[in-house]
């Protein structure tokens, strides 16, 4: 399961980050870390990117980037 597959309103816990290099570092700097709880808020009108709620703020990222973030669905 990865973050891109979660539907708006669904929550998950991050279990792994597949990205490498700058992308990975950027994700980490934005608080996207293993163990973190993440909730999908919205999908953009054209289907991409998505908006998620993490570390009590709202973050948007492209589905391609979200695909690299492994999650386990919570609740």
């Amino acid at each position: 399961m990865n973050l891109a597959k979660l539907k708006p309103g669904e929550k998950g816990r991050i279990t792994g980050i597949g990205a490498i290099g700058p992308l990975k570092r950027r994700l980490m700097d934005m608080g996207v870390l293993v163990g973190e709880e993440v909730k999908v808020i919205k999908v953009a009108p054209m289907g991409d990117p998505i908006e998620v709620f993490i570390k009590s703020y709202n973050l948007s990222l492209r589905k391609k980037e979200a695909e690299g973030i492994a999650v386990e669905v919570s609740e």
Partner: peptide, 8 residues
């Protein structure tokens, strides 16, 4: 470039 952006 990546698109990882805060929605403030």
């Amino acid at each position: 470039p990546m698109f990882i952006m805060e929605l403030p």
